[in-house]
Design a protein around this nucleic acid. Sequence first.
DNA 1: AAGTAAAGCGACATAGTGGC
DNA 2: GCCACTATGTCGCTTTACTT
Length: 274
Amino acid sequence: MQQFPKAVAYYYKRWHEFEMDLHHHPAMEIMYVIDGKCQIEIDDRVVDMRKGQYIFIQSNVKHRLIIDKNHPCRMLNIEFILHSNKSAHYMSIDQLFQTQPSLQTLFDPHQRYFLLKDDEVVYFTLRHLVLELDHQSANNQLLIDNLMVQLILWIDRNRREYNEQTNNQHMKKALTYIHEHYDTEIRVEILACITHLHPSYLHKIFRRSLGMTINQYITQVRLDKAKMLLINTEIPVTEISNYVGVNTSQYFSNLFKKETALSPSEYREHFREI
DNA sequence: AAGTAAAGCGACATAGTGGC
DNA sequence: GCCACTATGTCGCTTTACTT
């Protein structure tokens, strides 16, 4: 059965010192901070939110709003469900998934929530959607359906761009440097300088992104190059260590055996036979 | 998210030895 | 000469906890 997103609750509210009870509901919820700051307790975590940020909460995820007495907050909330509707004017959620596969992760129930920062377009769409919903009639149903889909698409793009901006740009710079300089000494300090990040913070990003440390990655690149040179060239083993940025052939053999359980010469012989 | 300090430990270089 | 292996000491990577 085809399902379509449908807004079931939408409201502006200015909050003062307040602690909501922990609750959950079948509807998905978007909580947008228009002004001030607040906290959301969700999944045993407390998430800080400030102006321009919004949270996308999956259905049936327990959450509550906390407003500090010194920091009032104005919010725009919208709750929506997926329902079957034969008179729907727009694309079903399945059709959207087919056209825009990244949307599937936005609706993945394992992704409990997304905390995102808006560049005003989400707020713009949200405002117009709520305004049209307030004047709901047969005349504006197409516009409402359209705005609902737009909102979902903007949130999805926002989510993807956010991930790319924070991780990939720094990672891309660091990885490019590693792949172009594996034949020389690569210091974390240099990578930090290139990415304009603190070395400790670069380590964090690296591990989060690739699941390994910077040096583990550098070693892997070097050993991959060494394997290729051993199989496809006649370069002596002692020189190959130099080609891939390992200063001493003794240490290179060590490293190589740890990785492949074969010495470089055994590896060359083994693959030549194959 | 981004930056910092500090501590611990592992990566790495080096030297020495020996087999082929 | 080439390669492998081991022991040892040093340096800086990595993690952690905390702050901005």
